[in-house]
Design a protein around this nucleic acid. Structure first.
Lengths: 219, 219
DNA sequence: GTCTATAAAAGGATAGAC
DNA sequence: GTCTATCCTTTTATAGAC
């Protein structure tokens, strides 16, 4: 895969200059096609055209359609780790931190890219269960774990009354997904602009603050 | 479609005795195959085998794969209307009614049939947007509308403090879906038995009661 | 490694007999 | 209406030249 042939030094240099251009072209084209059409409706011919290479070139770099799909989707799942929950280590109030998390979460989870990725995960979870695991770990599970840690410190400081921090964190994100995320998944709603997102985040944080302000929960 | 030929009275009688057996066989087989494999992975040959008929018989009853798929999925969406929110016209407490609704909702929405149907709606919402509409209207939208009406009466009676009843109802169901529904969609979680469902319903109702017990919301 | 050409199979849809 | 046999397109994957 990384064996640079000695027979055509000029071509080898062209590859070395930006590190296997063809392979990156394939990945870029396949990412576009798979995210747009899903696994079944995407064809290797269409991917080859989108990448500007021939089909055989794809097969020289990947074992087949399944392997290419797994590589593409797995990479997109790993990217979910980046825009995580911002750390709230300052002296901001709980409500302020939750509101900031809410806005970031809504912006990320309702984005077109994210919605399309989740649609594909759901569509192909039978054929590629490992991808569902990767998505869940890198996305929802990671966000929940971070928020749970923060909520736990808030609970230990006596600011809120919750039982299981993980369950409390899951509830917060579930409230944020609300009805709009389901509609987005089904392609019903077009968009939610920043003002609407802020309003909804405010509504959820207000509701959540009341929910966790009460007596300790039995878990 | 319903024109019973006069040329073969015996066959015509066989059809009349239970009302077009072949058509029902096709629907049964297609329902099974489509819900199990989705649109793309299902083949007309496979459906014909599952139904115990020939391919041409399917084409005699339906215009093609698309029309058959739409008929099958649309019918399953219509069935969602049946197990709706139980009416709470008695003198039960708000909490009791919500708890009953929560249990019924969890049982229905987490069922294997319902999860598979929603997976297909999500997968094919690009090709069949009308089906997503049908699902949303018959399922989530219908449940929200019924709960919203109930919450509105509770608000007018001074029992709870909410802004938009529809938004309040959507929040309740979003809390119930929680994290578990997303996991089910991705095929990660196996099952939630009745005891676990009851515990989770209790947790959500408790949290929700606190959330709606506070001051009036700005919507 | 990369391309053109081709194999081999599967799937949607149709023809024609009964 | 129903079946068997067939057409035609699409699709994954491979062969062979350079």
């Amino acid at each position: 895969m990384d064996s640079r042939s000695e027979t055509h030094p000029i071509i080898a240099d062209a590859q070395a200059s930006n590190g296997s251009t063809k392979r990156q072209d394939i990945i870029a084209g396949a990412t576009d096609v798979f995210l747009r059409l899903g696994y079944g409706a995407a064809s290797m011919e269409g991917i080859a055209q989108a990448a500007g290479v021939s089909k055989q070139t794809i097969y020289a770099h990947f074992d087949g359609k399944d392997a290419l799909f797994e590589a593409i989707i797995h990479e997109k799942c790993d990217e979910l780790r980046i825009p995580a929950v911002p750390s709230g280590d300052t002296d901001e109030s709980l409500e302020t931190v939750l509101f900031r998390i809410a806005q970031a979460f809504l912006k990320s989870v309702l984005s077109r890219k994210n919605v399309r990725l989740f649609r594909i995960i759901v569509s192909e979870c039978g054929r590629f269960p490992e991808l569902a695991d990767a998505f869940y770990r890198s996305g929802p599970r990671s966000a929940v774990a971070q928020l749970a840690r923060y909520l736990e410190t808030a609970r230990d400081a006596g600011e809120i009354a919750i039982g299981d921090p993980v369950q409390a964190a899951e509830l917060f994100f579930a409230m944020l997904r609300g009805d709009i995320y389901m509609r987005r998944l089904m392609g019903i709603d077009t968009d939610m602009d920043e003002a609407e997102a802020a309003n909804y985040a405010r509504f959820v944080v207000d509701s959540y603050m009341r929910a966790v302000a009460g007596a300790t929960l039995a878990v």
